[in-house]
């Protein structure tokens, strides 16, 4: 019984900790390369299995932000959430490369107080109705033992370029992609290099998954993987032009949250590959 409970708890933690394995979270911009004066990019945001078909859940827009090339934040316009997808617009009022997307962070796990198991987790999700639950790390009693606390961090973004591209600066925090080949330079038939960093350091041996959109109109899912080298650089040869979904995740034991024991990071991007 005890083992069963523990297994269930473990299953709940795994389920809560890896939402991306069930459904892919995606942003689908109307374009990534723009000309003219103050054009608008309009974006669909959702989670689903197949890319990019909004047939499961809308993405919450609470954490979605748009940053101009100079680093200032721009307003999301016309944001709305429907049954299967959210939408929002951004007017590109500054030339250069914009970063648009969301960040996610959280902590979850288990600990024991006087031999009784407690959960740490949000008020929604699988652990919401657990009898012994706390929502924040601060609520964990000082006499707690057997701490198994995971910090999670995620980023999901795309880059939009108006006019000439500008450099994409590393953020130095969590798992991120710093393109060597600029996102406005992705062309079928030309290999691209994408660099991945963890806390600003090269993420070596990282498995990166890529899924081209438009699955409904072909037989194979088209998913393929690349692995980063010692400098964190992955080389990608694009199988087809179009919007492509990129995802990578890793686990380490370098959480930044006090009392957390491990960390899980994920990175997602939508890239547009042009026809030659």
């Amino acid at each position: 019984m005890r083992i069963k409970t523990a297994l269930l708890a473990a299953a709940a933690i795994i389920a809560a900790a890896t939402p991306a394995t069930a459904h892919r979270q995606w942003l689908l911009p109307s374009g990534t390369i723009f000309s003219g004066e103050g054009p608008w990019v309009t974006v669909d945001a959702a989670s689903s299995n197949d890319l990019f078909y909004a047939d499961h859940n809308a993405m919450r827009l609470d954490n979605v932000k748009a940053w101009r090339p100079d680093g200032t934040e721009a307003e999301l316009k016309n944001a709305a959430t429907g049954r299967y997808r959210s939408v929002f617009d951004v007017q590109l009022d500054q030339p250069g490369t914009w970063r648009i997307g969301s960040t996610q962070s959280g902590v979850m796990g288990t600990f024991k107080v006087d031999g009784v198991e407690w959960r740490l987790g949000p008020a929604r999700g699988p652990a919401a109705n657990a009898p012994n639950r706390v929502a924040t790390v601060a609520e964990i009693p000082t006499n707690a033992t057997d701490l198994a606390i995971t910090e999670t961090g995620g980023r999901n973004e795309f880059f939009a370029t108006l006019g000439a591209p500008s450099a994409i600066k590393p953020l130095g925090q969590g798992l991120e992609m710093v393109p060597v080949t600029h996102p406005a330079e992705l062309v079928q038939g030309e290999s691209a290099q994408l660099r991945f960093l963890v806390d600003g350091q090269p993420a070596a041996d990282l498995k990166v998954t890529l899924v081209p959109g438009g699955k409904r109109y072909r037989d194979s899912e088209g998913v393929f993987e690349v692995t980063t080298d010692a400098d964190g650089v992955a080389t990608v040869n694009w199988p087809m032009p179009g919007m492509i979904w990129l995802n990578a995740s890793l686990r380490d034991d370098k959480p930044t949250t006090p009392r957390a024991t491990q960390r899980r990071l994920s990175y997602t991007a939508t890239l547009e590959v042009m026809a030659p």
Binding site: I33, F34, S35, G36, E37, P39, T161, G163, A164, P165, A184, E185, V187, M274, A275, P276
Partner: peptide, 21 residues
């Protein structure tokens, strides 16, 4: 609202090779 420059990027090779600058 939609100036003629809006579609310059449709000349996608030229746009990348120099049009955009």
């Amino acid at each position: 609202r939609e100036p003629g420059t809006k579609w310059l990027s449709d000349l996608r090779s030229w746009w990348r090779k120099g049009g955009r600058s």
